[in-house]
Amino acid sequence: MKSIFEISFPLKSELMTTVRLAAGGVCAMKGLDIDAAEDCKVCITESLLLLKHRGYLTANIFFYEGEPLSVRIVGEGEGDGTPSPEDDISLALLSALLGDVETTERDGKLHSISFEIGLK
């Protein structure tokens, strides 16, 4: 599948707002309504937190062409990370907002999160 927009950035808390803004921009460009765009931003933030807590140093976000909008968030690099008790809440929130969330693991560790959002 062809990505229409990609972001690669160091997984640092101070960059979250910038990433959320960029995600909001992509959602607006794809015609998602305000609620769906806000939900998308929340889901991206939660995914990034999950990856950060697993010690990834870099995150790549891919937005794919099509309706609904497909998003994939992938962790790269090895660093220190400790799964947080809040991870359960993050995962449950992703399910609550999206319905279907696809995750992949690498070496027994969460590696990527994919979801679709917006009207079909």
């Binding site: 609620d35 359960d88 809440i89 995962l91 449950a92 929130l93 399910s95 609550a96 907002l97």
Partner: peptide, 19 residues
Amino acid sequence: LKFSTFITPTITGEIKNYF
């Protein structure tokens, strides 16, 4: 089910209804 897993969609749903 863990309570946190159960309650998160419940709370999220209520917040979205509120919006």
